[in-house]
Simulated scan of single mutants.
Amino acid sequence: MPRPALDPIDRQLIALLREDARAPTAVLARKLKLSRTTVQSRMERLQRQRVIAGYTISVPDELEASLVRAHVLITLVPKQSAAIEQALRKIPELRVLHSVSGPFDLIAIVAATSIGELDALIDRIGALDGVERTTSAIVLSTRIDR
Rank of each mutant, 00 (worst) to 15 (best):
R22N: 14
V77H: 06
I14K: 00
R89V: 14
R143Q: 05
L32D: 14
S41E: 09
S101Y: 11
A21F: 03
R89G: 08
S99P: 05
A5W: 02
D105K: 01
L97A: 11
D20F: 11
K33I: 11
A137R: 06
R22Q: 13
L6A: 00
A87P: 02
D105I: 08
G102Y: 15
D129A: 08
P8M: 12
A15C: 05
I125F: 05
E93S: 11
G126K: 01
A70L: 10
I52C: 03
S136D: 15
S141T: 10
A53T: 14
K31N: 10
V72M: 03
I9C: 02
I109N: 04
S81K: 15
Q47V: 15
D61A: 15
Q86T: 13
V39L: 04
L67M: 03
D145P: 02
I14N: 01
D7K: 00
D20A: 08
A137M: 10
Q49K: 13
D10E: 02
T56C: 03
T75I: 12
L34P: 05
L97E: 11
K31A: 14
L46H: 08
T37L: 14
E93K: 01
K90M: 09
S58P: 00
V100S: 04
I144D: 00
I138V: 15
A83I: 05
R50Y: 00
Q40E: 07
L13V: 09
G126C: 06
L63N: 02
Q86N: 02
I57N: 06
R95A: 11
P60R: 03
V59T: 15
P60Y: 11
S58C: 02
T113E: 06
L32S: 09
I74V: 15
T75G: 09
L94C: 04
D145Y: 01
A70W: 02
R146A: 06
I138T: 14
A21W: 01
L73Q: 14
G116Q: 02
R48W: 15
I109Y: 07
R89Y: 12
L13R: 00
A108I: 03
H98V: 14
T25Q: 10
I138E: 04
D7V: 01
I74C: 09
V110A: 08
L73N: 13
